[in-house]
Computed example of a mutant assay.
Amino acid sequence: MTERHLATLAKADFPDFEPGSVWLVGSGPGGPGLLTLLAWHALGRADVIVHDALVSPDVMALAPDHVTRIHAGKRGGKPSPKQADITIRLIELARQGRRVLRLKGGDPFMFGRGGEEAAALADAGIPFRIVPGISAGLGGLAYAGLPVTHRDTNHAVIFVTGHDETGAVPSAVDWPAVARAAPVIVLFMAVKHLPVIAARLIEAGRIPDEAVTIVSNVARPGQIALETTLGTVGSLIDVPTPAIVVIGPVARYRTTLDWYVDEVRRHVFG
Rank of each mutant, 00 (worst) to 15 (best):
S56F: 00
P242Q: 08
I130V: 15
G30S: 02
L187A: 08
G30W: 01
L43W: 14
P132Q: 06
R200A: 14
D209T: 15
K82T: 04
V48C: 03
P208D: 14
K78E: 15
W259R: 14
A177F: 01
V261K: 11
M60S: 03
E3W: 02
D52H: 05
V55S: 08
A63Q: 12
G234N: 04
D47H: 11
P81M: 07
V55R: 06
R89Y: 00
G20R: 02
Q223W: 11
V148A: 01
F14M: 12
E210Y: 09
G162F: 05
G139M: 07
A12V: 10
T149E: 06
Y253W: 11
E18G: 01
T87K: 13
D47R: 08
H163W: 07
S216C: 13
A122S: 11
A219G: 11
A182C: 09
A251C: 10
V184Y: 04
E210G: 11
G73L: 08
I130Y: 08
A172K: 12
F17Q: 03
Y253K: 03
T213R: 12
V212D: 03
V264F: 07
I130L: 15
E116L: 05
V212K: 05
P15Y: 08
W259G: 13
A72G: 07
G115H: 03
F128I: 02
L201K: 12
P127K: 11
L201I: 09
T256A: 10
G140S: 02
H150K: 03
L34R: 09
V59L: 02
P64R: 05
T228D: 09
L37A: 14
V169P: 09
L101F: 10
V261I: 10
A84R: 15
P147A: 01
V22W: 03
F188K: 02
V246N: 00
R69L: 05
T256Q: 07
I91H: 07
A199T: 03
G205Y: 12
T161I: 05
W175M: 06
T153S: 14
P79S: 03
V178D: 05
H66Y: 06
V268A: 13
M189S: 00
R200M: 15
R89A: 13
T149Y: 04
I88A: 15
P242E: 08
I70Q: 11
